[in-house]
């Protein structure tokens, strides 16, 4: 059997984390290519429903990344995002689903190296979890 390559969806905020990813790229940092980035204007734009959708469609991991607390371009977006993320994670947990497939991280525009580290860590973690069973479940 082929080795399992996780597919991770990353919601990256335009002002910090996407720019951090860009920096990692322009700095030619080597990193796993498992993350599919989706640019959002702010981490608070990520409705839990979008995360649940990616998860149920079989994404092996879902990352939300935004500016560090205090640095959100819209001032407070990431604080709200954190609450919503906590609620979603709790919902997933209390239904006995794999909450470890969801991750929230703060990555600034100047943290290309941190972006790489987050992607590496999360890819490894998800690799260990194995494929998301939602991808093979018929009756969703």
């Amino acid at each position: 059997m082929d080795e399992f390559e996780p597919r991770i969806i990353g919601f990256l905020c335009n002002w910090c984390s996407y720019a951090g990813a860009d920096l990692a790229g322009t700095s030619r940092l080597e990193m796993p290519s498992n993350l599919v980035p989706i640019k959002v204007m702010c981490s608070s734009r990520v409705d839990p429903e979008m995360v649940a959708d990616a998860f149920l469609r079989g994404a092996d991991g879902v990352l939300i990344a935004g500016c560090h607390p205090g640095d959100c371009h819209y001032d407070k977006g990431n604080y709200y995002a954190r609450r919503r993320f906590a609620v979603l994670k709790k919902v997933v947990e209390s239904l006995g689903l794999e909450a470890d497939r969801l991750r929230l991280s703060w990555i600034s525009a100047s943290e290309g190296a941190r972006f790489r580290k987050v992607v590496e860590e999360f890819t490894e973690k998800v690799r260990k979890l194995g494929p998301n069973p939602a991808g093979k479940e018929t009756l969703l």
């Binding site: 839990p48 429903e49 649940a52 959708d53 149920l56 979603l88 919902v91 997933v92 239904l95 969703l140």
Partner: peptide, 8 residues
């Protein structure tokens, strides 16, 4: 998705 989204 409907039910989980609603719970969230």
């Amino acid at each position: 998705l409907f039910h989980i989204g609603r719970m969230a």
